[in-house]
Each structure stands twice: as C-alpha cells, then as structure tokens.
Amino acid sequence: MPGCVFGLLGPNGSGKTTLFRILTTLLAPDAGSVTVAGSNPQSDGHQVRAQLGAVYQDTALDDELTVEENLRFHGALYGLKPADLNKRIDELLARFSLTERRSSYVKSLSGGLQRRTDLCRGLLHRPAVLLLDEPTTGLDPAARHAFWSILLHIQKQENTTILLATHLMEEAERCDEIAIMDRGAVVTQGAPDDLTAAMGSDVLLLESDTPSALRDHIEAQFGVEAHVVGSLVQVTNGDIHHLMGSLYEAFGELIQSATIRKPTLEDVFMAHAGYHLEGGAARFTESTLQL
C-alpha cells in the first residue's frame, strides 16, 4: 500500500537486513523475486535505486564533512540539480531543526542529530519508498520520539511509503501494518491492533522450573493453547481470569509466579516464534546459570 508505514519486526538474524540488501540491489535473492514500485531490483537496478531512500543502522555520513557538505555530496550522487538540491536541503534542514547545524562537522553532533541528518540524506531525492533499518539504534527515548514525530510528519506530507526493520515493540506499534519475522520467514502479518486483538483480551504468563511439563498438563486438562517461552508458559485465548484459579488449584506446585496482562506485540511474537524478542539473550544466560 503506497503511503503506509510497514514494519518488519524480528530479532537480529531474522533476515530483515538481508531483505533490505536485496531491495537496494546490493544482493541477489537466493530464490524468489521482489518488486519495488513496479520494478525488479535485479534487472532494473537503476530504476529501483532512484525510487528508494535508505537509512541504515550505521549512519552513511562522512564524519569529517559538515552537515551541508554531506547532503550536497549525496544529492550529487542522485544527480539532483544544484538549484533543486539547495531548496531541498534548506527545506529538510528547517523541518528537522538542523538549520543552525548546517556548517557543523558531523563528528561534533550528538547521536540524535546525526540520525536526523542521515534521515535528511535518505529523503533528499523524495524517494517513493524509504527503507529504515533499525534507524534509532543507540538513541535515548526522547531522541527516538523526536526522530519519529518529524519523520511521520514528512511521510504524510510527501506520501512516502516506509518499510521499517526493527526489534523494538515501541517502533513496531507506530506502523500501519507489521510482519513478524523469525529465521528468514514471515510468521504472521497484520495491523498491530488486529494482531494483539487476536490473542484474546488477556494473556497469562506462568513462570515455572518445568515449563514443558506444565504446558502439556494445561493443554491436556483444560484444552487451551499454551506456548513455552524460555522459563515461561504463555496462555492466550481463553477466559484467563477464570482459568488462573483453576490452574493454581491443579498445578500450584509447578508455578512460581503468574502474570496477567493485556496482550502486546511481544506476546504476539512469543506466541509465533517461541522466544522473547527483547532481552532474549539475557534470559538465555539467566536460565543457563540456573543449570
């Protein structure tokens, strides 16, 4: 859908960056094919690259040059005419509150300002599709918020389609639609609200030393769907409040703690992928230490 914000939510190694490299024509797909604004990256590389803007995890700026020099440089790579380029640079710098920094060296800017400058770079040629690969890595929440509010403002005005790769729930929730990715494949797709609504009104998380055994018991006796995620058992789609009491009566000795919450995208991810999206590595160490 042109003009929408589409998110790819998944942990590192789930194939988001690889997909971006295929879309930007830097890599050929092993199998299958993709189309960008009607063109094939393999056969019409030029066409595709002219329509795409991309902001990567590492900023594509030259530290030793100023903000303006960087933008001029990248504008020239896109063959923008000096007069148009000047106008566009003025416009974007004003929009991103960077006008006062136009002559500052990039290395002297804070992380948040560097990210914003890099976003200006990606938008210089008014791309039809903007790819954002973990664009707010390393930013504090305030800087992340500022980044997004400016971005979405411009996105609406210029009707840019955004394809966002992220492992942050907070960013995924801003999307019109998301695809959840795990090990190179899309496991589920939909609007964030629909995906969470599909989990039922509440989610129950039970912590246990023997989560697999607990899940088997629950599924056998109560006939509800349960997933093991690390040391947790996740139960969705049922009368959770009622169920919790019965579960404690039946298997109280197997349960260490229980949490009931409104379903989040984290729960959607856990239900489909079987592990935590955020802090997955930390959890793993924790459980290894217990052994």
Partner: peptide, 13 residues
Amino acid sequence: KSGFLQAAVAAPM
C-alpha cells in the same frame, strides 16, 4: 563496511 559506501552504491549511478 560502514553505511557510507552502502549508501553510495544504493544511489542510481
């Protein structure tokens, strides 16, 4: 390895 050349080769040239 940094984003700089990635962005340059992603330009339509």
